[in-house]
């Protein structure tokens, strides 16, 4: 564990807490893409299949439970909770995510470390996580006024993976033989997808104006 990875995990956790805070307190998910939330739940389920048979540390175990629990409860809130579901804009959240899921699955079958079910699922979860934000970014472009919590949520989500990139650089130089091409490339693609959001987010923060993404 290094400071970049811990900061990354804490940033990731806080992004989820910001979203849960928004949904639970103001009972609204306006501007949030249910498609992206469902993709994240799938990412965690396929990533943590080994939660019970490969024990790394208490920290690892607890964080996996938190990520699984929070992502599933967010999907539940947006689908089942009357008030929250009413605030969900399904006419705008129209990204057909089969165009994301299937290619990631095929790619995971072709490019992986080992052709076993768990390893392919783990690789699939990496590819899926890299592009899972797309429905949310598309929805942000369609959402006229993006509220602060939604902007903070997406920003923290992008920042966590950027911190993981620093973690991989650190581990590459401190741990001989630490090479994770699949993880690195997926993580780089994921972070690059946030590039223009970061640009407009920081601009809106600097000029103290409402965040707006050009359509």
């Amino acid at each position: 564990m290094n400071v970049f990875r811990l900061a990354g995990d804490m940033t990731h956790l806080s992004s989820i807490l910001v979203l849960l805070l928004k949904i639970h307190t103001i009972k609204s998910c306006a501007g949030i893409s249910l498609k992206t939330q469902e993709l994240y739940a799938l990412v965690f389920i396929t990533r943590y299949l080994d939660i019970f048979d490969r024990f790394t540390s208490i920290y690892n175990f607890l964080m996996k439970l938190i990520f699984l629990g929070s992502s599933l409860s967010i999907v539940w809130y947006m689908r089942r909770h009357k008030a929250v579901h009413r605030s969900y804009d399904k006419d705008q959240d129209t990204f057909r995510y089969q165009f994301i899921v299937l290619p990631c699955l095929l790619l995971a079958l072709v490019i992986n470390h080992k052709l076993t079910f768990k390893e392919v699922m783990w690789t699939f979860s990496l590819y899926l996580e890299a592009v899972a934000i797309l429905p949310q970014l598309v929805l942000l472009q369609r959402t006229r006024n993006i509220d602060n919590l939604t902007g903070q949520y997406v920003f923290l989500l992008g920042a966590y993976r950027a911190l993981y990139l620093l973690n991989w650089v650190y581990r590459y130089f401190t741990e001989p033989g630490f090479v994770r091409w699949i993880t690195w490339i997926a993580g780089l693609v994921q972070t690059l997808l946030y590039a223009d959001f970061f640009y407009y987010y920081i601009l809106s923060w600097k000029n103290n104006v409402k965040l707006e993404l050009p359509a």
Partner: peptide, 10 residues
């Protein structure tokens, strides 16, 4: 093939 990867990261 590469050695068994320990998925030690989240």
């Amino acid at each position: 093939s590469t050695k068994e990867h320990s998925h030690d990261e989240l």
